[in-house]
Write a protein that binds this DNA or RNA. Structure first.
Length: 380
RNA sequence: GGAGGGGUUCCCGAGUGGCCAAAGGGAGCAGACUGUAAAUCUGCCGGCGCAGCCUACGGAGGUUCGAAUCCUCCCCCCUCCA
């Protein structure tokens, strides 16, 4: 009854990269795909039609934040999140599991759920698996995420195991809590950096049965090596016919590395947040627009880029706007970065379609120095 | 002409005998950012041969063991009176 399906269209002959098509209640998503993050019901700084125009197929919104403000009931009364925010396309909602991690100082975990103290006004709220599903259904989410605990890093084996097992129990509760059947539901695999825990988490989560599977608890401070190791452990155990989503990843090279390891879906605040902080992605690495060297640079941010910002504005002007604290700087930077990511994903899909993923990977490595197993904090 | 206030490191501005290369802003220069408590956060911000030295608080001189801080003269700015 869920208007959700995933079709695997093609597998790359040389790598594990997959080309797929996801069908949701609000439209199609070609995978591998990257979702810009719109936590509070907006991709910060951009009009929805701009987001769409940049090539975004699906965006991510957040259960915890929208529950606190303005409240999921209000959004439901206003016709659901799609209508409320004027985004007609697919929306995936994160469950609040990440806030268990990012707001660690403001919450308390129990078997029942998580007691949060609002970062907005200090009021207390309990998020349970059932509540998280209820909120997401009420928002009208196309893909809901199970309520989990994004395991901190580092975590010892004992903690990671307990956390993972609890997430497993919560996953079952989430599955059983669905009422409308309109949104798809993805399970989330945890287990820290421990192979045995990750394996168990995948097996049990798959056994529970979801429309798609996500790897959580990554890009929380671990090394790239650890991150990819976890992907390599989990991926072979995941069913071929369901989308695989690595949550919170990441830098373009991380996405590439995950795609060649069989991952279909990504989200990350990096393109939008760093844009607002003055960092721009380019084919030759990162560009910090406030740097003095761009003071009178007439060139575009990235000569290879087809975005509105690169077609119309010089680095000098963008630097000026940023240094002057102008809102337009944030908008233009965000347009560029989101377009950079979207085009990157388009290129990846094209490479898989034509069976040239391996070659693409090589070119990317050459261009970046070492595109795959990069060190931490490598420039792009 | 008279009375008062003031001149501090790129800018604003605190400091009124030693704890002062001098608070705090700003500007500037870098770094970070990975299921967004983020248009945020962090660092640097006189020079050098750098556990020390040199140059610096309008200028010149003086008092003092020691002066951005006290005294004298000079220059400049502001306010009020004539």
């Amino acid at each position: 009854m869920t208007p959700f399906s995933f079709r695997l269209l093609r597998k790359d002959p040389a790598t594990k990269a997959r080309l797929g098509l996801m069908k949701t209640a609000h439209g199609l998503v070609q995978t591998p795909a990257f979702m810009p993050v719109g936590t509070q019901g907006t991709v910060k700084g951009l009009l929805p039609e701009t987001v769409r125009g940049l090539g975004a197929q699906m965006i991510l919104a957040n259960t915890y934040h929208l529950y606190l403000r303005p409240g999921h009931r209000l959004i439901e009364d206003m016709g659901g999140l799609h209508r409320f925010m004027n985004w007609p396309g697919p929306i995936l909602t994160d469950s609040g599991g990440f806030q268990v991690h990012s707001l660690a100082g403001l919450r308390k975990i129990s078997e029942e759920g998580v007691l949060f103290q609002s970062h907005i006004d200090g009021s207390r709220h309990v998020l349970t698996p059932e509540k998280a599903v209820e909120i997401q259904e009420s928002l009208g989410s196309d893909i809901m995420m199970c309520f989990d605990e994004c395991t901190p890093y580092p975590a010892d084996h004992d903690y990671a195991r307990k956390s993972m097992e609890r997430t497993l129990r919560w996953a079952k509760r989430c599955r059983d809590a669905r009422k409308t059947g309109r949104g798809a539901l993805f399970g989330i695999i945890q287990g820290g950096m421990y192979p045995d825990l990750r394996e168990k988490s995948v097996e049990e989560t798959v056994k529970t049965g979801f429309d798609g599977y996500a790897l959580g608890g990554l890009s929380v401070g671990e090394t790239k090596e650890d991150m990819l190791r976890v992907v390599e452990i989990a991926e072979p155990l995941l069913p071929d016919d369901r989308p695989r989503y690595v949550m919170g990843v990441g830098m373009p090279e991380d996405i590439l590395a995950c795609v060649t390891r069989g991952i279909d879906l990504f989200d990350c605040v990096l393109p939008t947040r760093t844009a607002r902080n003055g960092m721009l992605f380019t084919n030759s690495g990162k560009l910090v627009i406030r740097h003095a060297q761009y003071r009178n640079d007439e060139g575009p941010v990235d000569g290879d880029c087809d975005c509105y910002t690169c077609r119309h504005y010089s680095r000098a002007y963008l630097r000026h706007l940023f240094m002057a604290g102008e809102i337009l700087a944030l908008v233009l930077n965000t347009i560029h970065n989101v377009r950079y990511y979207m085009r990157f994903m388009e290129t990846l899909r094209a490479a898989i379609r034509s069976g040239e993923m391996a070659g693409f990977q090589e070119d990317f490595k050459k261009k970046r120095g070492n595109g795959d197993r990069v060190h931490d904090r490598e420039p792009l």
